[in-house]
């Protein structure tokens, strides 16, 4: 069954179609990748799916429910959690606290609960702390738990963002270029972690620039170029696809801004 279903998804900026009638189905439990040259519209697609950007046309279905015009926090509440191409850490909070924010959806309680601190609330706070430490352990950051997040080296910031997203117990995890700016070794351990997350039952949809990485770990790949889906298939099919080869060889690489 498809966990995420995009039908004819289109986004126009002025006269320019950043995404043009994209159809995509992400099966539950899969590790799905969207690749494409820079400016192909990958991030635009992500932003629409996660509710950060309204679509010009088309529809998005999550877990069988239409979420085309649902606000982002509600989409997150339905189990779709995303990370960002430019890491969006919470500066001024410690590494552990960053992950604790990730538990937001999985917990409850507002001002009143924080003031009166009933028993369930205190228990929840302890659980949140434990869960944060568990997740930091999972990505290998438990030693840095009390450091301010902004002091982490870039590679570890990426891992922290991943741990934070996991804290929200996502059904579908959207990763926007998680390997951007990482060295080979860091990319390797990240790939390993992503595969582990997927193996534990979380559906993963990732955007990537690094084709080698994607063809190695993804079950299925969709290719975008100039806002259009030009191909979809297994890694082997994609590697042999003539249009994909043309898109990648024909377009000169533009360095990330």
């Amino acid at each position: 069954m498809a966990l995420l279903k995009a039908k004819g998804l289109t986004k126009r900026f002025g006269g320019l179609a950043a995404n043009n009638e994209i159809d995509l189905e992400v099966p539950e439990g899969s590790l799905f990748a969207v690749i494409g040259p820079n400016g192909a519209g990958k991030t635009t697609f992500f932003n629409m799916v996660s509710g950060f950007l309204s679509s010009s046309a088309g529809s998005i279905e999550l877990d069988g429910r239409d979420v085309t015009h649902v606000p982002q926090h509600e989409i997150a509440g339905m189990g779709l959690v995303r990370t960002f191409q430019l890491v969006q850490l919470f500066n001024g909070m410690s590494v552990a606290e960053n992950v604790e924010v990730g538990c937001h959806l999985a917990t409850k309680g507002g001002v009143a609960a924080s003031l009166f601190r009933p028993k369930w609330f205190r228990k929840q706070e302890v659980e949140v702390r434990e869960r944060a430490m568990e997740l930091l352990d999972f990505v290998g950051l438990s030693a840095q738990a009390d450091i301010e997040a902004e002091l982490l080296p870039y590679g570890q910031q990426r891992l922290l963002e991943l741990a934070r997203a996991l804290a929200a117990k996502p059904k579908l995890l959207l990763l926007d270029e998680p390997a951007a700016g990482l060295n080979t070794q860091e990319t390797e351990s990240l790939a390993h972690i992503i595969q582990k997350i997927n193996a534990q039952g979380t559906t993963v949809l990732l955007i990537e620039h690094d084709v080698a990485l994607v063809t190695r770990i993804a079950h299925r790949i969709a290719v975008l170029d100039f806002g259009k889906k030009i191909a979809e298939g297994t890694p082997e099919e994609i590697k042999a696809h003539p249009e994909v080869i043309a898109a990648y060889l024909g377009v000169e690489e533009i360095p990330d801004a």
Binding site: H73, A76, L89, F90, A168
Partner: peptide
């Protein structure tokens, strides 16, 4: 205050 987008993505 750290990142509005980051917070919203986590359901805040």
């Amino acid at each position: 205050s750290g990142s509005e987008n980051g917070a919203a993505a986590l359901g805040v």
